[in-house]
């Protein structure tokens, strides 16, 4: 990976996949309010526990990584919904008051 790829999380994820890792990629698809990362921001996660990038200011990465493990196992994509006004299973809200949707998919 060269310097120009420091924000290219997909390239990092593809590198991991090529090395034989099981990889899921999470992408912010929609934001409302003061969410810290714009649509298109990515977080890559491997089954072995590697992480690169971000989909928030750090508030939901743990929950997204948990969901990514499930997608790695089942192969089924997920559309996750985070926000202070949403009473979701994880009880993980964005402290800043924003809302985000995150799409999680497996690199096949």
């Amino acid at each position: 990976m060269n310097l120009h790829d420091s924000e290219d999380i997909l390239a990092t994820a593809a590198g991991w996949r090529a090395a034989g890792e099981l990889v899921a990629v999470a992408t912010v698809t929609e934001t409302w309010g003061s969410s810290p990362r714009p649509a298109g921001s990515r977080l890559a996660v491997t089954k072995s526990g590697k992480m690169a990038g971000s989909v928030s200011g750090g508030c939901i990465e743990g929950a997204v990584a948990d969901a990514a493990m499930k997608t790695i196992e089942t192969g089924a994509p997920q559309l996750l919904d985070f926000g202070v006004s949403h009473e979701r299973a994880w009880e993980v809200g964005l402290a800043c008051g924003g809302k985000v949707k995150v799409f999680v998919e497996k690199l096949l």
């Binding site: 290219d8 997909l10 390239a11 593809a14 996949r17 990629v25 992408t27 698809t29 994509p77 997920q78 559309l79 799409f103 998919e105 497996k106 690199l107 096949l108």
Partner: peptide
């Protein structure tokens, strides 16, 4: 994401060609 889509995305990047990755929600096509 299929290996074909990933490879095509990376090729576009190498060619410095602008592309959009379109994902149907929530299904993922």
């Amino acid at each position: 994401m299929t290996p074909d889509i990933l490879a095509a995305l990376q090729q576009a990047k190498a060619d410095k060609r602008p592309v959009v990755l379109a994902t149907q929600l929530p299904g993922g096509e």
